[in-house]
Structures are given as structure tokens and as C-alpha cells.
Amino acid sequence: MSRQRKATPSARIGMLTYHALMLAISAVFLLPFYWMTISAFKTNAEIFSNPVTWLPDPIRWENMTSLLTREDFPFVQQFVNSVFYAGTVAVLVCLSCSLAAYSFGCLRWRGRNLVFGLTVCALLMPTIVTFLPIYLAWSKIGLTGTYWPLITPFLFGDAFFIFMLRQFFMGVPRELLDAARLDGASEFRIWWQIVMPQLRTPLIIVGLFATVYTWNEFFLPLIYLQDREAFPLSVGLFTFQSQRAVEWSVSMMGAFLTALPMVALFLLTQRLFQRGLSSTGLK
């Protein structure tokens, strides 16, 4: 900043006002995170102390150990469940959605626009409208209570991620596919050897998005899963909170440790995330 040309006084004041405003807004946005984090390391009494204490003193690390050993909140097991659930879905999404997205974005065929139009409709369709029959079918097969109903649909693809990936596939120049055709590559080989290697970054972006969405998914696991041991963290935290509403410090520690992996993942891959976002908007 100091090496810049000397700003006029009015521009200086403008800049200061801007940053003051933005920092104030940022504080509002960050407050819940901050409060969650410090409450996770306080006792219940300390959480509700008046006047407000802005730093836990002492830091109650025992909240963490107590959370990890509680029988009514099998946090470790649920964490593993969440990792499995989000990870599997992310991998499946990358594979299945890239097939359809390639077809919509790079290949010309009759009916393509119709099928893609239907995909957009599927994307806009409220989940619940199609949910009950699917639930009844799974329950008939006897697979409720397992992760099959939660994961299987992603073997086929997902409207949102297909839509998102298609934007990237559309960026692959047609000439490249033509060059590969002249070189004698089969359509499958073109997808796998020519197109996919160029879309590594978009695929990682989509995988990250799928991870976050699945990690935070609440409705489907709430309905399909019955065992505390089988819950992912979102449902586990909900169940614990609704049964032990007064144990705020444990709830906060749970919320903190549920949110932490996603925040960490985001901070590590920030650049990619933002690229993915600008592509979800309509071109």
C-alpha cells in the first residue's frame, strides 16, 4: 500500500470508510463462527456468563475428550460415516456426471437438447415431489437403514452437477475432438484420453462441491437411517441437540468439529471453489 501513488485525502477517507464498512459486515458474518468456537471450549455456566466473556478461560479441552467418549453421541463413528458418505458421493458424482456432461457439452445428437432440458427440469424439481415413492421402494427392498438409498442415485448422475460440469465441457473446442477423430481415436477414447485430462480442475471442483453438499445433507439421512451408530454428523448433531438441549458446550463442540473439516477443506482449495462458483451462474 505504501508504495502506491499518494492518494488524495478524499480518496483516502473513502478507502477507510470502505474497509471499515466491510470489516463490520465481516464481523457480523463471523460472529456465529466465533461464538461457536469459544463456546466449544467453555463450560455451560461460562457460556451464559454475564457479562459476556470473549475468550474461554481456561480452555476446556475436556469438552473434546468428553465428546469423543460419550455413549449418547458416537461422534467418531458418525464422523467416519460422514467421511464415507461424502467421499463416496463425490467420487461417484465425478464419474457419472462427467459422462452425461460430456454428452451434453461436446457431442451432437438428436434429442440432446430435449434430454438436457429435462435435466434442467429435474434440477428445479423439489426433492420431496419424487421422494416418497423412492423411499417406499427402498423400504420394500429392505435397504432402509443402510447407505444404499443415499448413494445409489449418484451412480446415475445428478442434475445439478451435470449442469455445472457441462459448462466446463462446453469450453473444450470442437476442433480438438475432430483432431482426435482424424487420429483414429474412438469416441470413448476421446472422452477418456483427450477431454477428461483437460478437465481435471473442474472435476476436482465438482468433487469438492459434492463433498460439501453431502457432508451437510440432512433430510435424506434423517429419514433413511435409524441407528445412532449409522448417522452422519449432521443427523447425529441434530439428534443429540434435540435430546440434550441443555448441554450447550457439548453441542457446540459437536457443531465446531462438524463444521471444521469443511471450513478447512475450503480454505485449502479456495481458489478452485471460487472458479466453480462463477461457472454455476448462467453463462
Binding site: 452425461a100 438428436r110 434430454v115 424439481m125 415431489v129 451435470i162 469416441e187
Partner: peptide, 27 residues
């Protein structure tokens, strides 16, 4: 190219039928 297009989209077409179209009607 058209054959490949349909083949690549096929899993999703099946998925849409199984998880969107049919359930919508059944609802």
C-alpha cells in the same frame, strides 16, 4: 458421434427415469 452421445447420456437418462420421472407419476 450420435451413438456415443446417447451412450454417454444413457446412465443419466436411466437415472432420470428411475429417480425422477417414474416417482413423479407415482407420487
Amino acid at each position: 458421434e450420435a451413438r456415443a452421445g446417447v451412450l454417454f447420456a444413457l446412465p443419466w437418462i436411466i437415472g432420470m427415469t428411475l429417480f425422477v420421472a417414474i416417482p413423479l407419476v407415482v407420487t
